[in-house]
């Protein structure tokens, strides 16, 4: 535990003592902020138009749901932006150690590979949580000026957290494969996109195969969280995705010893 914490602390410090953390959090907030603004203004305009129409036809104004029409939309956009930003967090975790040779220090110290993988993974998740925490400002503003339901917001965040952690787990894996950070980030990104696209393909193939494909899709499982539905099958899916990523990282590090690269 102490050694896990040593790795974890060093990684977190290294994120926050370099510009990486601030730039990634800043850019993520910039882009989600722009989309938040667009989504909320278009929702407000839509509401006003609906109100005017209702007055014209002398009907009661329609009840428009901010959860469905704005927040769910925002969560979906955030889940997409995360697939750009999280590979940038994870790309250096092992690639940099391989490039500078510090991996030799880690692998000749009395720490297990599992301790180092979990330490690094948790550090990246911590930075990701900081990123998510800042976006709560958007929600707080909606709660001040509107009356959204809290439930779907919380499940949405839980979904984002699980989805992001899955990205990170595989980001760790891809960074164990190469000493080049760009390659690590690019392959993580393409991998994530692939598991997104599987969901779209499922609509075009036979129903049986389509069902199988869509249950592999990273984003299909996120839909329910965004809608406010909490289903264990989705939680299990993400947890097994994370475990798989970390397990592959472990195998990759062990085998790189044998290959000597």
């Amino acid at each position: 535990m102490r050694k896990f914490l040593a790795i974890y602390n060093r990684e977190v410090k290294s994120y926050f003592s370099s510009p990486i953390a601030y730039i990634i959090i800043g850019l993520f907030l910039l882009i989600t902020g722009v989309f938040y603004y667009l989504i909320v203004t278009s929702f407000v305009q839509y509401c006003m138009r609906a109100d005017m129409q209702a007055q014209y036809y002398r009907m009661a104004p329609p009840k428009l749901n901010v959860n469905v029409m704005a927040i769910r939309n925002l969560f979906q956009n955030m889940s997409l932006f995360m697939s750009f930003f999280l590979p940038m967090i994870t790309m250096r975790l092992y690639s940099d150690e391989k490039k500078t040779g510090t991996i030799e220090l880690l692998m000749t110290s009395p720490i297990t590979n599992l301790q180092s993988i979990l330490g690094k993974f948790s550090a990246a998740v911590t930075l990701f949580l900081a990123m998510l925490a800042f976006t709560s400002v958007y929600m707080i503003l909606l709660f001040i000026y509107g009356n959204p339901e809290l439930g779907p917001v919380l499940t949405g965040y839980l979904g984002l957290f699980l989805l992001g952690s899955s990205y990170i787990a595989f980001g760790v894996f891809f960074s164990t494969l190469t000493d080049n950070q760009i390659i690590a980030a690019a392959s993580t990104f393409v991998f994530i996109l692939f598991f997104w696209a599987i969901g779209w393909v499922s609509a075009m193939v036979s129903p049986g195969l389509g069902h199988v494909l869509s249950s592999f899709s990273l984003i299909e499982h996120f839909e329910d969280f965004a809608k406010g539905v909490l289903d264990t099958k989705h939680i299990v899916y993400y947890l097994s995705f994370i475990t798989m990523g970390l397990f592959l990282s472990f195998v990759s590090i062990e085998s790189s010893r044998w290959r000597g690269r």
Partner: peptide
Amino acid sequence: PLYQEMRVRDYLDFVAKIKQ
């Protein structure tokens, strides 16, 4: 095997930690 962005003392403290 040096972590370039760390201070010397912090670095050695980290090594001491993982070396038990």
